[in-house]
Computed example of a mutant assay.
Amino acid sequence: MGVVAKRSSMTFFSDGASHYSHRVRIVLAEKGVTVDIVDVDADNKPAELADLNPYNSLPTLLDRDLALYESKVMMEYLDERFPHPPLLPVYPVARGQSRLWMYRIERDWCRLVDLIDNPKTKAKEADAARKELRESLSGVAPIFDDKPYFMSDEFTLVDCCLAPILWRLPKLGVEIAKTKQTTPLFKYMDLIFARESFQASLSEAELDMRTQLKS
């Protein structure tokens, strides 16, 4: 991964197309954890997954006898298990604020991504979700003028949640116009996407999301 690997006996069951799996892979890469990543077809899951996870869902992280199956729990567990580099602020107030940002990303943006990505979503509903996501991201774009990362001078778990969504915008059919207002958001995307851990985290499916755009 280009960073010093920290020995571990972890297995990560990952959906290569899912932004929830992607966010955990970014943390794993950022921490330099040695992990066996099992790329799972969401429609053809291995039998052992149901034994580890009562919801038989992805992603699932196995660390020896501990199985975790909620992405934010995995991210915070990894941050505590491998404290360097830290991906949450030291002080309780700032940590609480970061957790609220992650919660808001899930409520405001992940919900829309999931709606657009769901093949059962009606075209009219998907178009409405695209419009809402585009307008919401464009509206918050100026905040990236204040600090290089999401409301922070340092790369955090909040960025790990947001980056996979931004990477998927072309695949989702969400095009954000390049204007004076949105320029800070594009600079943020360039910064995040060039990060070594982000590049190391990409699955083949995720690489194709942008490769197809260039071809």
Rank of each mutant, 00 (worst) to 15 (best):
S21L: 05
S21K: 06
A205F: 02
L100P: 00
L58C: 05
R104C: 10
Y55F: 14
D127N: 13
L28V: 14
D153I: 01
L137D: 08
A17L: 12
E125F: 00
E135T: 05
F193W: 14
Y91I: 03
P46Y: 09
F193G: 05
V174C: 08
D79L: 03
E80L: 12
V174P: 06
G173D: 11
L157H: 00
S136Y: 05
L185C: 09
L58Q: 01
G32S: 04
T183M: 14
D43C: 02
L191I: 03
V4G: 06
V174A: 09
F13G: 00
K6V: 15
K124I: 12
P92I: 12
C160A: 15
Q212K: 15
E204C: 01
G139F: 08
F144A: 03
K31M: 07
S201R: 06
L112V: 04
F144T: 04
L207E: 13
P170Q: 07
R195E: 06
R23W: 01
S8V: 03
P119Y: 08
P92Y: 07
A163E: 04
P184N: 11
E196L: 09
G2L: 12
R210N: 08
T34G: 11
K178M: 10
I165V: 15
A47M: 05
E175Q: 11
Y91P: 00
R95Q: 13
T211W: 03
A129P: 10
Y91C: 03
M189A: 13
L191D: 02
I26T: 07
Y149L: 04
F82E: 03
A94G: 00
D36Q: 09
I116D: 09
V3C: 07
E70D: 15
L166H: 05
A29M: 04
I192N: 05
L62I: 10
R23E: 12
V93K: 14
A163G: 03
L169S: 07
R95T: 11
P142R: 10
V113Q: 11
M75W: 01
